[in-house]
Design a protein around this nucleic acid. Structure first.
Length: 203
DNA sequence: ATCAAGATTACCT
DNA sequence: GGTAATCTTGATA
């Protein structure tokens, strides 16, 4: 696959309404580039977190040292540590100070599968089940891409981690549901995924 | 100062 | 289906 950085999503994409950005991220290509390697995957599942009204958002009770990046201008990467062992990555949305983001929940591997496999399982010969399991969860994405607290706050308009545009996904291919793994504001239908993807975190 | 919860995953039966 | 692992954060039970 050719990585064409002229296709990088512009700042304006991230400044839109959070639910719109979360939905429109489906089908886009998440990329991490280093000197030696390119890792790329298609986003197939996201969730929106909106601080002002959403009790489950980290930003609900205002800015803290942990969630400071969520309050930056849209287009930054918010990485947090949870359960004592995992990282999860979000795309910050809307204007500076709003405290909103879209959680990256699942992706389909495109480029750099051997490195994804090495980072996740310590080997490159994978079973069919392991291939499906490379990126089908928020913490798995961070393991496979090698994303940790060092990447918290990275600007997605930079050259290391960014998202490439792709043709819009048909509305009929998108399923909307309640979010996963939260205990508050469960009823909000803010999870978006590609209904026909094999790489969704949970059915 | 203390402590419960946590935007999860892997492995068990 | 169920639960252990593991530790930072932030509210103060």
């Amino acid at each position: 696959m050719k990585i064409d950085i002229s296709q990088k999503l512009p700042r304006d994409f991230y400044l839109n309404d959070t639910l719109t950005v979360a939905r429109d991220l489906l089908g886009k290509i998440f990329v991490r580039k280093t000197d030696e390697t390119i890792l790329a995957a298609k986003i197939v599942e996201t969730e929106a977190y909106i601080g002002a009204v959403d009790e489950s958002a980290h930003s609900y009770n205002g800015k803290t040292k942990r969630n400071e990046v969520m309050f930056r201008e849209g287009g930054h990467l918010y990485v947090y540590f949870t359960y004592g062992m995992y990282y999860c990555a979000n795309v910050v949305t809307e204007a500076e100070g709003t405290g909103n983001a879209a959680l990256l929940r699942a992706m389909e591997p495109l480029e750099g599968v051997d490195l994804f496999a090495q980072n996740r399982f310590g080997k490159t010969e994978l079973s069919e089940k392991e291939k499906i399991n490379l990126l089908n969860g928020p913490a798995k994405i961070c393991m496979a891409f090698g994303i940790d607290k060092e990447k918290n706050g990275v600007d997605l308009l930079g050259d290391e981690i960014f998202i490439l545009d792709a043709p819009p996904v048909k509305k009929s291919e998108i399923t909307v549901s309640e979010r996963i793994g939260i205990s508050k504001s469960k009823e909000l239908p803010w999870r978006f995924y590609l209904a026909n993807s094999k790489f969704i975190s949970r059915r």
